[in-house]
Amino acid sequence: MSETLKVVVDRPDVNVAVLRTDGYINNTGGEEIAKEAYALLGSGVNRLLLDLEKTKIVNSIGISILIEILEKLLDQGGKLAFCRLTPTIEKTFQIMGLAQYARIFSAPEPALAWLRGETE
């Protein structure tokens, strides 16, 4: 049985990137996302959208790695958004308070508009 996470990166703007995940965000999945996110941060991206449309389950170890990414982004004056979460993943993020520091959207377009500073 393997739930290996796949991450596809898209960079629509010079300082904005979208990471589309497919699979279970656990410790190894979280590390896979972090590897991509930190490479992007190193190349000037400080606004990230995590599109979790194809992720149906997460665990708290994976989310703790997402919190590390959020911390690094905030340290660099950046922003983190999530979109297309399952109701349970969104509820879990709310329970943990992640939504106080990152924004959650139902679709990618409004998330990208927020990351670009086009909307509040």
């Binding site: 389950i57 708290s60 109701p87 349970t88 879990t92």
Partner: peptide, 9 residues
């Protein structure tokens, strides 16, 4: 899904 998440944890 909420029960599944709790079982995972």
């Amino acid at each position: 899904d909420e029960v599944k998440m709790a079982v995972v944890e």
